[in-house]
Design a protein around this nucleic acid. Structure first.
Lengths: 197, 197
DNA sequence: CACTAGGTAGACAGGTTTGTCTACCTAGTG
DNA sequence: CACTAGGTAGACAAACCTGTCTACCTAGTG
């Protein structure tokens, strides 16, 4: 395995679990078993490394999204399913993109990668819901990372998926002058749910 | 104005706008026009200062919440109205609590303050909705900070308020328990005990 | 007046960080 | 063989950072 990939993989793990600013270059190269020069030969600076780390995450996400869609179909639940896979396995540290931007608020590189990632998500939601619902879905999707990070209870992802599903389902009617429908609502929220172990 | 308060106010502004880790002690004391000894006489460490900063924000939030409730009534919209006031005035840097925890993930002091703040919010939502809806409202409330931070478009807060309102409307009460939520809730939230140390 | 609480100014120690640089090594290829 | 691309090892500079310390000042109070 090339030094570049070893660095990227090690940095990804450390950046995510310990935070970007708490992870020094020296720690990365020690854990990756590479020399410092290898890092600076392959990456212009730490900021560039962070950007590449985020780019890698986005590419992986796009890949997993495509795979899941081809298996389960293009539904609003898929992004939440993917998140659930991560949340259940051990510790969860929130959204790596928003985390990185919080730690490096002045980095244009990081900001660009975050935007690119969000565009992927928005695009996906735009494919399963009308344009008015997309901001609502983004709201729920943004929220689930924070809730999962801060609540010891990890059921947020289930709540979020169900909520997102209900938003898509009931869309045609406007929430405001919707059918007051306890029927529609209970049906929507109460029913459904294929998996969710 | 006491040096302690000058430090706290200056630190609050800097911590929020520039981030905790990017704000050095030297910058704080320079902008506050106080001596370094004044800072360390009043605050045990930088971490303690950050915790006090978050505590101050929470107290202000509780105060504004109480005022708004006494004026507009205890509705689900109030927390979103308060957020809107902040979002519209110039730049918005996201939730100061989650930001601080992202920057200092190992700080127990910070974690405790974040939890205390979230308890206030959850308590409030528990006062306007049934227990099943509260996690959904938290999801939307968590999401609106991220969305407002990352989307140049600040309409997220409007979308979020409307969504929260529709969630509450859909569950005016639990059919089994038959009571209109707001009544029971006022009791719950109204019985705020003074802080138990 | 004398005392004290709280303030100022700033040097300094000890640590951490990123990024550069020199010197050397090694596997693969023409 | 000779060359090269990419790697190792680690010293080092320069710039931060937090927290401590000495020395001095000043307004209010008994």
């Amino acid at each position: 395995m090339s030094a570049k990939q070893k660095i990227l993989d090690t940095a990804a793990k450390l950046f995510y679990e310990r935070g970007v600013n708490s992870t020094g270059i020296d720690l990365i190269i020690a854990q990756a078993n590479v020399a410092k020069a290898s890092l600076y030969n392959n990456f212009e600076s730490k900021e560039h490394l962070v950007a590449k780390y985020l780019e890698m995450l986005r590419l992986k996400f796009e890949e997993r999204l495509a795979t899941a869609v081809s298996v389960r179909g293009r539904t609003v639940a898929v992004p939440f399913d993917l998140l659930e896979e991560i949340v259940v396995e051990g510790e969860f540290f929130g959204c790596p993109f928003t985390n990185a931007l919080t730690e490096l608020p002045d980095s244009k590189l990081v900001k660009a990668e975050v935007t690119r990632y969000r565009d992927v998500v928005m695009n996906y939601f735009a494919g399963v819901a009308t344009t008015e619902v997309v901001p609502q879905l983004m709201l729920v999707y943004d929220g689930v990372f924070t809730s999962c990070k801060l609540d010891p209870d990890r059921t947020s992802v289930v709540v979020a998926r169900r909520l997102a599903q209900s938003l898509v389902d009931r869309f045609p009617s406007d929430p405001l002058h919707a059918t007051r429908g306890s029927v529609a609502c209970t049906a929507v929220v109460g029913s459904h749910e294929t998996h969710s172990s």
